[in-house]
């Protein structure tokens, strides 16, 4: 069920989480830089959304952005960012957060 906008509802942030905005910003930047086309992005995102739906994922904003992230990760592989590099870097960031005291900038 859809519903009209509530005119009294204050406008919130357009993204629930900062990482969600980063995904779309990166996709836009990579299209502009010619690493993949707008059409490639639409098809990769469409395929990831369909897969989420086929897997019975809930129809939520989180599911949408996780699909967008998968699409961006797979398109980035053609630009030389391999899955194993992403995985190693993710672990490195996790370790960096664990060893950094609260309030300090987190660096690798």
């Amino acid at each position: 069920m859809f519903a009209p906008d509530d005119p009294l509802k204050p406008p919130g942030n357009r993204f629930s989480e900062p990482w969600q905005a980063t995904i779309l910003a990166m996709a836009t930047a990579m299209i502009r830089e010619g690493h993949f086309s707008q059409d490639d992005w639409a098809h990769a995102l469409g395929a990831a959304l369909k897969q989420a739906e086929d897997n019975g994922q809930p129809d939520t904003e989180e599911t949408y952005f996780l699909a967008a992230l998968s699409a961006l990760e797979s398109l980035s592989e053609t630009s030389g960012i391999a899955a194993k590099d992403r995985s190693a870097r993710k672990t490195a960031w996790g370790n960096a957060y664990r060893r950094t005291p609260h309030g300090q900038p987190v660096n690798l």
């Binding site: 990482w19 990166m26 992230l69 490195a92």
Partner: peptide, 21 residues
């Protein structure tokens, strides 16, 4: 408490991808 707040799994994935790109 002493550590920085650990980001969520997708946030870490995005951070990894962004920093590599």
């Amino acid at each position: 408490h002493l550590h920085a707040h650990m980001p969520s799994d997708p946030a870490l994935r995005v951070k990894a991808l962004e920093s590599l790109a």
